[in-house]
Design a binder for these strands. Structure first.
Lengths: 210, 210
DNA sequence: AACTGTGAAGTTTTTCACAGCC
DNA sequence: GGCTGTGAAAAACTTCACAGTT
């Protein structure tokens, strides 16, 4: 549970807010000006009450009898999520997955961007992927401090994930997006999000089995 | 909430079971024979009661006064998750991410494996990645039926994700792991799991902002 | 003594239902 | 009439606390 001065809300609310933002941005691109919570509900598989309540923790953004204006809701969602400023992200491990992540970046979208990559393999160091320079991991702390980066993506092999995490924490990183299939050991003030493909597949298989 | 004939449990329980399995397999590799819920708790950031209760929905796997035998728990977890049989997975979209996923497969682990890949780009079709043949997407339905594949990974660009999903559903696919940043529209008997890197990063940023 | 398994209690999250506004 | 915002009720999920086993 997350509490501000005014309200308490579920961590799931935050996850959904990011989905709302993404989809409202697309609605704008598709020329949609106004949507109701009922329409959103069908689009995103979230109940209309859930959508309204998620937003209500942060203010009153809709118009009764009308719905939500897409443009202004995107503005508000960005403000809520902290995306009205630019965020730099570091990435460690420029293997196939790391490379795919570096290349997935769309430079028209400026809010969140991987701006520094690191590897330990001489073959990769000082190369450039999608305009991003790959540094020697030895210089991690120095560059993180210099660029004041607070978020790090870890896409190294399993065996190195904890060592990289320790280095990241020591360097002042506060949030980690981890692709290695392991639960990282971190101090409790550090936020970790795990993306584990095989766990997700296994979860799906469980549901197929009944 | 998921109910069997005996019990009802949270969908989160299933997600955690996959994490337990992964970590118990590593414990075995490290030569650990027996662990208590308290030790697991420290390792995985799950309360000991949570761990015990998650397992209790499926049987009694521990020994009072002792703990859990790693070997036998792995066996039980595989049985619970349905991993005591082989599962074939299809993948659509052999771009950088798709390629990384195909290459990430460890052939010593046999339970879940991507055995068919699909693309629409002539450049990729009939090539082989990590021993997996890339088929023309035109033959998707035929091959899925032939191989009796029930699970599909979608790693195509945003604009094609819904069309691929429709094709998958029409072909009899029952579970989808989706990497495209969009909520897919599917019939309600189809299971979808979304892995959205930018949503996760935005979630982390929210927490950094307070 | 140490640790599991589990009803019951407590907490969190979602849904309901309706007042309030366009 | 249609849709939002929100307390109150319901449902879901986690933790407690302790009986039971080795």
């Amino acid at each position: 549970m997350i509490c501000t001065d005014k309200n308490c809300f579920s961590p799931e609310t935050v996850r959904r807010l990011a989905v709302y933002l993404q989809n409202f941005e697309r609605l704008i691109k598709n020329g949609v000006d106004v949507v109701s919570s009922g329409q959103i509900s069908k689009l995103l598989n979230v109940s209309p009450e859930q959508f309204r309540k998620d937003l209500s923790y942060f203010g009153e953004f809709g118009k009764r009898g009308v719905g939500y204006q897409t443009e202004s809701l995107v503005y508000e969602l960005k403000k809520i999520l902290g995306l009205n400023q630019a965020w730099q992200v570091a990435l460690v491990g420029v293997g196939r997955l790391g490379c795919a992540l570096l290349n997935s970046q769309d430079f028209s979208e400026l809010n969140v961007r991987i701006t520094a990559a690191f590897d330990s393999d001489k073959k990769n160091i000082d190369k450039t992927v999608n305009g991003i320079h790959i540094h020697d991991i030895i210089n991690f702390k120095k560059i993180i401090k210099q660029k004041k980066i607070r978020i790090c993506v870890i896409s190294v092999p399993l065996d190195h994930a904890q060592a990289v995490t320790d280095l990241a924490v020591e360097s002042g990183i506060e949030a980690i997006l981890n692709f290695a299939p392991v639960i990282l050991n971190v101090p409790e003030n550090i936020h970790v999000s795990n993306m584990d493909i095989y766990c997700e597949l296994e979860r799906l298989i469980f549901f197929l089995n009944k």
